[in-house]
Computed example of a mutant assay.
Amino acid sequence: MKNNDNQTPYMQSLKTRILETAMKEFVEKGVKVVRMDDIAKSLGISKRTLYQIYDGKEELLYEGLRRFMQRRREKVEEVMKTSDTVMDVILYVYRLNVEEFRQTSSDFLTEITHYPTVQVLFSEDREQSYERFIGFLRRGVDEGMFKDDVDLELISVMFSAIGAYITSNKLYLTYEMNKLFKDLIFVSLRGFCTQKGLKHLERIEKEM
């Protein structure tokens, strides 16, 4: 990947515009069909200028996903700080996932699994998410939403495995995201909810 530390403000701005344009095209159409030529033409720049900033589609995809994941983490962290209960966070994440999935082509979801650098990025994110999710579960226990006699680390591993299974088996091609949440995530969640947690979960399911 290129070293862009010494770029001018204009080039930094252009870099951001390229990234946003490329990701919009990738998400809507899939990665394969979008050419570097298409991205350059959309921005009114030469392909040479584009290659001065990004080596190719894999770098664009990597940087775009890294930026997206960082922003997503920040959104969820902000909701964590301002929400009354962990159940409010779950509802927010559910709505966020459904909306993102609605805007994303199935080709994009399938094709991003073929890029080695992207897989490394996902692997690193899963490791970080593991610790964050355990913290989330502990908060739920403190709030009386989750049982205090369950192994939180094992629960975190289970949900990570569910997410990996959905991705590796491309269940998003067969099922809508709200069904995956309801029949996989929420059914699993019920197993370690207290009576108080179940009441809140039922409220969430009605709002869904």
Rank of each mutant, 00 (worst) to 15 (best):
M1Y: 13
K2V: 09
N4G: 00
Y10T: 09
Y10P: 11
M11W: 02
L14G: 06
K15R: 10
R17A: 03
L19C: 10
E20D: 07
T21M: 01
T21R: 12
F26A: 10
V27P: 02
V31I: 06
D37I: 05
D38K: 04
A40Q: 10
L43W: 02
L43P: 04
L50T: 15
L50M: 10
Q52A: 02
Y54P: 04
Y54D: 09
D55R: 01
G56L: 02
G64W: 09
G64M: 11
G64P: 15
F68E: 07
Q70A: 13
R73T: 13
E74H: 00
M87I: 06
I90G: 05
L91D: 12
V93N: 03
V93C: 15
Y94S: 06
N97P: 14
V98Y: 14
E99W: 11
E100S: 02
S105W: 01
F108C: 09
L109R: 10
L109Y: 03
L109G: 01
I112M: 10
T113Q: 02
T113C: 03
Q128E: 05
R132F: 01
I134P: 08
R138Q: 03
D142K: 09
E143A: 12
M145P: 06
F146P: 12
V150E: 07
M158C: 14
A161Q: 15
I162D: 15
T167M: 15
S168F: 04
S168E: 09
N169D: 06
K170V: 09
Y172K: 00
N178W: 11
N178H: 07
K182Q: 03
F186V: 03
F192G: 04
C193Q: 00
T194P: 01
H200Y: 14
I204P: 05
